[in-house]
């Protein structure tokens, strides 16, 4: 999960940059307009978009207002799906709560971790390269089913009498063992910890950001007699804020898409405490075949994501302004 998310973070950032830039990119005085060749080159995407993007989007929008069932068909029901979602579907409410709870726990922790480690690795000491690689490995493999199963067994043992690694370690430390998957308060933490463990991508992005801070800033601060802590608070963090904030919003968005881990590790249990949005949507669509209802859920998801993206655009403009004023 983290991988696409992390890179998309970058993509969206650059996307916004590009949107600002695209119309002005007309340096090609000696380029003649060449419609045929142009469309020929972009035709793979264009055709793909039309067949697998535009048409499905149109169908999906239509489905959202029907009670379409894969096997029984369906008919137009107006806003009934949305009404059901917000007024009568108890599990939908649970799914939204579970997702927000997960996002609010996992995202800040993950970013704090990533930032702390990036600061730690932002040094010219020898061997840093290897540590960076080591910290990044969990992110490389983290989205896989294999790691999800491994994670389940780390916390759950063999599903019979034997404890897993985590509880055994807790036992060594004299801490009472936890029934991780039986308690709605602890089950979500197994997923949060998995997300935190994969702090590699935001760490890399922070590291790259740290490298871009001009060393003169630090020198100036040193001359002013600033301590390491003061430099961190007065130079590093303010200059890094745009990246932090951007990552924050983007990670929230990706939190709404978490699927595999919840599907494999907790299956939404117990008491729907880990029934994340994407998981519930999948089940409604592909276990219950209520594809009309699930499409409506997908559009609400789009609205949620659009809201955060817009927020991001708005606020990042503020940040950009702030930065240029400073610089």
């Amino acid at each position: 999960m983290s991988e696409p998310a992390a890179v998309l973070t970058g993509a969206n950032q650059t996307q916004e940059e590009a949107l600002r830039r695209a119309p002005t990119n007309s340096r090609s005085r000696d380029f003649k307009r060449n419609n045929l060749v142009g469309y020929l080159f972009v035709s793979p995407w264009l055709i793909g978009f039309f067949l697998f993007g535009f048409i499905p989007i149109a169908i999906s929008l239509y489905l959202a207002f029907t009670n379409y069932h894969l096997l029984r068909g369906g008919e137009w029901v107006g806003l009934a799906n949305f009404e059901r979602m917000f007024t009568s579907d108890i599990r939908y409410g649970r799914a939204v709560v579970a997702t927000f709870r997960y996002v609010l726990l996992a995202v800040p922790l993950r970013l704090i971790f990533a930032l702390a480690v990036a600061l730690l690795l932002n040094t010219k000491r020898r061997g840093v390269y290897w540590f960076r690689a080591a910290y990044y490995i969990p992110s490389v493999i983290g989205g896989s089913v294999a790691v999800a199963v491994m994670w389940r067994q780390l916390f759950g043992g063999d599903g019979r009498v034997n404890e897993g690694v985590i509880n055994t370690l807790l036992g060594f430390m004299g801490i009472e063992r936890l029934n991780w998957f039986g308690n709605p308060d602890t089950a979500i933490w197994t997923l949060v910890l998995l997300a935190v463990w994969q702090f590699g991508s935001p760490m890399l992005i922070f590291l790259a950001g740290l490298r871009q801070i001009p060393s003169e800033f630090y020198e100036a601060a040193s001359i002013d007699g600033a301590s390491g802590w003061q430099k961190l608070m007065n130079v590093t963090l303010p200059l890094l804020t745009p990246i932090i904030f951007f990552n924050f919003i983007m990670q929230i968005i990706s939190g709404f898409r978490v699927f595999t881990q919840a599907f494999v590790i907790t299956a939404g249990n117990p008491l729907d405490s880990t029934l994340f949005y994407a998981l519930y949507l999948y089940r409604r669509a592909f276990n219950d075949f209520q594809m009309g209802y699930a499409s409506a859920m997908a559009w609400v998801l789009l609205l949620i994501i659009a809201f955060f993206t817009l927020l991001n655009f708005r606020l990042s403009r503020l940040w950009v302004f702030y930065e240029t004023k400073e610089g």
């Binding site: 759950g156 599903g159 019979r160 009498v161 029934n179 998957f181 039986g182 308690n183 249990n269 117990p270």
Partner: peptide
């Protein structure tokens, strides 16, 4: 309790009555 039950995943072979 349901908490305790959640620790017994798996098929009939893993049942407490077997253990």
């Amino acid at each position: 309790t349901p908490e305790e039950a959640s620790q017994y995943s798996g098929g009939p072979e893993n049942s407490p009555i077997v253990a």
